[in-house]
Design a protein around this nucleic acid. Structure first.
Lengths: 140, 140
DNA sequence: TGACAGATGCAACTCAGTTGCGTTAATATG
DNA sequence: CATATTAACGCAACTGAGTTGCATCTGTCA
């Protein structure tokens, strides 16, 4: 649960417009705690009577990522998922119902990233750590 | 670099046929150390004069995963990548040239998975840990 | 209130992946 | 070696995510 006002006024402060689509998308992402795919966002907004062209939503999400307001979650079920930016965290993905949830824990991967740089010459800029399994509902 | 003969004779031992497509795909994956997408596999085989219908390759990869011979790599650039099964490892993905490489290191995520089960009721069956950044070529 | 540029909608597109169905070919058996 | 069985194959047509060009609209500011 984020505060959409923060993100929107931040964007406005940088000289971007507060359009109907921008407000709707940021507000929607702010009040939901799970990463959402664009088809999901389109459908959820449509159910609220907020109709947008899919091109608009694709472009808006690309814009929000570029401006650092949203993050793309790499989960690979051939859709791309998005969530508002916040503290670095990871995800659990239920292999049965597809539910994706944020999980926070202190995990120290810095030593691994140092090894990758020194041994392989690979400079890590970000990582993704996702856990696949069964959520509490599907497990039982 | 795997030995394709091991995988193929294993499959034959289980009563599956050694078809032209099966041999070509397993052999190709065995002699390349990076996960490959299906369009990449199709193109690489085509260049060797080995023509297959894309449906065949999609079905063959699904079969190899089901039989435990191949693994699907979740990297989410909207394509699915495949590699022959082997020791559990992770990947580095260059954000500039797209190069994907295997990396092995001992990483202990068991305590994290225990926390997820006890605290959230989420039973981890597998995880993916991918590092995005710049490879040694693109970095300089 | 008018103008500018950022944002939008639409149509047409690309490309990964899927499905149904008739045909081919790898293997076992006589 | 001939033949039968069925796993595997090829083809065509499809779905669905994501993209692009272009004309139009609208949020903001002077």
């Amino acid at each position: 649960m984020h505060d959409s006002k923060d993100f929107l006024s931040e964007l406005q402060g940088r000289g971007f417009r507060l359009t109907r689509a921008r407000k709707a998308i940021v507000t929607f992402l702010a009040c939901i705690d799970a990463p959402q795919s664009i088809p999901e966002i389109l459908e959820a907004l449509r159910k609220k009577g907020l109709l947008f062209n899919k091109t608009t939503v694709y472009r808006e999400l690309a814009f929000l990522v570029k401006e650092g307001v949203a993050k793309e979650v790499r989960v690979s079920d051939e859709k791309r998922y998005y969530e508002l930016a916040g503290e670095h965290h990871h995800h659990t993905i239920c292999m049965r119902c597809g539910d994706i949830r944020d999980v926070l824990f202190r995990e120290n991967l810095l030593h691994v990233e140092r090894v990758l740089l020194e041994r392989d010459g690979f400079r890590v800029l970000e990582h993704s750590l996702e856990f696949f399994g069964l959520c509490s509902v599907c497990k039982s």
